[in-house]
């Protein structure tokens, strides 16, 4: 299992955790982790604390998630990226588009 998704008990927060490698091979699995959720005003937390490698298609996948979140008036937070991953997010200036903490 390379993607874990957990909905909080109160149903207001979805945590999607990614394994070491975040790349195109996770495309379908990543989409499936959120696609069926249509609850409004949900907080989506993308946990990248375990992720060591991320390619540009992963950035594209994050953008698709962002579209989904916006469509349902939710909130997206990228959580605890490692230094390498943070560098990639910074080059793409994603901190201008979403919350990274």
């Amino acid at each position: 299992m390379t993607i874990n998704n957990k909905l909080s008990a109160d149903g207001k927060q979805l945590v999607i955790s990614i394994d070491e490698r975040f790349d195109f091979s996770l495309h379908q699995q990543f989409r499936d982790s959120y696609n069926s959720l249509t609850t409004q005003e949900l907080t989506y937390i993308l946990d990248l604390s375990q992720t060591e490698y991320m390619d540009s298609s992963a950035l594209g996948m994050i953008l698709l998630l962002k579209d989904h979140v916006q469509l349902h008036a939710g909130h997206l937070i990228i959580s605890k990226p490692s230094d390498t991953v943070r560098k990639i997010l910074e080059i793409a200036q994603f901190q201008r588009l979403m919350t990274i903490e």
Partner: peptide, 14 residues
């Protein structure tokens, strides 16, 4: 250094 997200993501430049 990069100062803007890649092109094609936002409808307009920041």
């Amino acid at each position: 250094a990069s100062t803007h997200p890649p092109l094609g993501i936002l409808p307009q430049l920041l």
